[in-house]
Amino acid sequence: MVADSAEAWERQPGESAAAWMAFACYRDLGLSRSISKVAGTLGKARTLVERWSTNHQWVIRAEAWEREQDRLWRAERQQASREVARRHARLATAAQSKIIAQLQQLDPSRLSPSDVIRWLEVTIRLERQAYGMDLAEPASGPATPNTVDVSGLSDEERRARMEQLRRELESRIGTLGGEPR
């Protein structure tokens, strides 16, 4: 009978040192465990090892050992996952502060129209992600976060649209540091 006071995989009351050593060997064989392997490894008669196994409930104790090892492994993985998440959050925060410093020094007048569009797309996507919005949903208005259609505009309208996008980008960049420009 497995005692209530000791863990099932520990030495049980009334279990001899030899029987305990045989159980430890059985337990540690893992998925390939068998009475025959224990008897062979320890140089004991198979019938003796079989009797110890029956009297001391090796199968139940080994299963309890496996469950405990699995529980410990899951707890270790969960802790490691938390540590990774914390480390990544610290790295992201450090990187963001450096990126914000770079963005604040960016001269919007030196951006090409395609740069302005790309910056706008990126900032819209980041903003939508920050608010938990589905990126597959269309943004309000005719354009989605990943496209800006200017094909139907005249050259003058395109220049005006680019200027509008440049001002919007400049405004967004200026507010990244907490103070509008």
Rank of each mutant, 00 (worst) to 15 (best):
47 T>R: 08
50 E>P: 00
39 A>T: 09
28 D>H: 05
118 R>F: 10
20 W>H: 15
181 R>G: 04
18 A>Q: 11
144 T>C: 13
69 Q>A: 04
1 M>N: 07
78 Q>I: 03
143 A>M: 06
181 R>L: 04
119 W>I: 14
1 M>I: 14
160 A>F: 01
9 W>C: 02
16 S>Y: 05
12 Q>N: 11
80 A>K: 07
77 R>D: 04
59 V>W: 10
131 Y>I: 01
23 F>N: 02
161 R>V: 01
172 R>N: 11
141 G>D: 05
31 L>M: 10
142 P>E: 14
24 A>N: 05
49 V>G: 13
29 L>W: 07
179 E>L: 11
71 R>A: 15
41 T>H: 15
26 Y>Q: 08
78 Q>L: 04
78 Q>W: 00
136 A>D: 13
54 T>D: 08
97 S>E: 11
139 A>F: 15
90 R>I: 03
21 M>S: 13
15 E>A: 01
38 V>N: 10
67 R>V: 08
22 A>L: 04
133 M>K: 09
44 K>L: 14
69 Q>D: 04
55 N>D: 14
142 P>M: 07
174 G>T: 01
52 W>Y: 12
48 L>A: 15
11 R>Y: 01
46 R>Q: 15
150 V>S: 07
147 T>W: 07
179 E>V: 15
84 V>N: 05
39 A>M: 08
20 W>M: 00
2 V>Q: 03
102 Q>T: 11
156 E>T: 09
175 T>N: 06
107 D>S: 11
169 L>T: 11
79 Q>R: 14
5 S>E: 12
136 A>F: 08
159 R>V: 04
154 S>K: 00
33 R>M: 08
63 E>L: 06
134 D>F: 02
64 A>L: 02
160 A>W: 01
46 R>P: 09
176 L>G: 07
110 R>S: 15
108 P>D: 05
66 E>Y: 12
165 L>W: 05
62 A>D: 12
138 P>T: 13
9 W>A: 00
53 S>V: 00
70 D>I: 06
22 A>D: 06
47 T>Y: 04
81 S>H: 05
54 T>Y: 06
15 E>S: 05
180 P>T: 13
110 R>F: 01
16 S>K: 05
107 D>G: 06
51 R>M: 12
136 A>L: 11
147 T>L: 13
54 T>S: 13
124 I>V: 14
151 S>I: 02
173 I>L: 15
98 K>E: 07
107 D>F: 05
37 K>C: 09
159 R>P: 03
65 W>S: 00
68 E>P: 02
23 F>C: 03
138 P>W: 02
69 Q>C: 10
154 S>P: 04
181 R>K: 02
176 L>Y: 13
75 A>R: 10
57 Q>I: 04
11 R>P: 02
39 A>R: 13
150 V>C: 04
53 S>Q: 10
91 L>C: 11
133 M>F: 09
